[in-house]
């Protein structure tokens, strides 16, 4: 009887640690796996040969709460067209910037409105991104992806991607251009 009540008390003690743990994974750091080919070659470079392989990445959540974004950051965001779908994209431009979109978007330059950003997948052929749905509100972003954790071979920080030469005219902003 006494051992049973002890087990019960241990279980209860563990339960009380659930909310702090959830808080940590939602607002500080967590881990996720990336599926799909839209971020090739940064994530899942061998998607064609091994479609079931998923890269595992670190998600940095507190940057979202503090609103710290740079051009070139890889982020996870809810698809604006589908609230059930979490996607991984790279921030190309921030508010105020002038972007020359790629097809299928019309070729007229787009000024990014306040509180929005321009996101693109690294692989243009496998990605549905801002070139399809336009600038997205920063409020859709759920996390920044600073590190690749698995596979071991490619462990390390996620690079900031190629310079978007001539495509993005940057506007300096003290709040966003950290």
């Amino acid at each position: 009887m006494s051992t049973r009540s002890k087990h019960f008390r241990d279980g209860l003690r563990l339960l009380f640690w659930l909310p702090p743990a959830l808080f940590f994974t939602r607002h500080v750091y967590s881990v996720a796996s990336v599926s799909g080919a839209s971020m090739q070659p940064t994530f899942n470079p061998g998607h064609a040969s091994a479609p079931l392989h998923h890269d595992v990445v670190l998600l940095d959540r507190w940057s979202v709460a503090l609103n710290l974004y740079k051009r070139g950051d890889v982020v996870t965001l809810w698809s604006p067209q589908n609230p059930k779908l979490l996607t991984t994209k790279r921030i190309i431009a921030l508010e105020g910037d002038l972007v020359h979109p790629l097809p299928p978007s019309p070729p007229t330059p787009v000024r990014i409105p306040p509180g929005h950003c321009w996101v693109e997948g690294d692989s243009h052929y496998h990605s549905r991104d801002s070139n399809t749905y336009g600038p997205v509100p920063l409020g859709l972003i759920t996390a920044k992806v600073p590190y690749l954790l698995w596979p071991m071979k490619r462990f390390g920080p996620v690079d900031i991607g190629p310079e978007q030469k001539g495509r993005v005219r940057k506007i300096k902003q003290k709040a966003l251009d950290v």
């Binding site: 604006p80 067209q81 609230p83 859709l140």
Partner: peptide, 28 residues
């Protein structure tokens, strides 16, 4: 569009809403 909603304030004469920023994604 699919996945979006149209938001409006009840006080149309003094409200910044979808009239200004367009349809809003459901995930917002």
């Amino acid at each position: 569009p699919k996945g979006y909603v149209w938001l409006a304030g009840d006080n149309a004469s003094n409200s910044t809403d979808s009239r200004a920023y367009g349809p809003v994604p459901m995930a917002m």
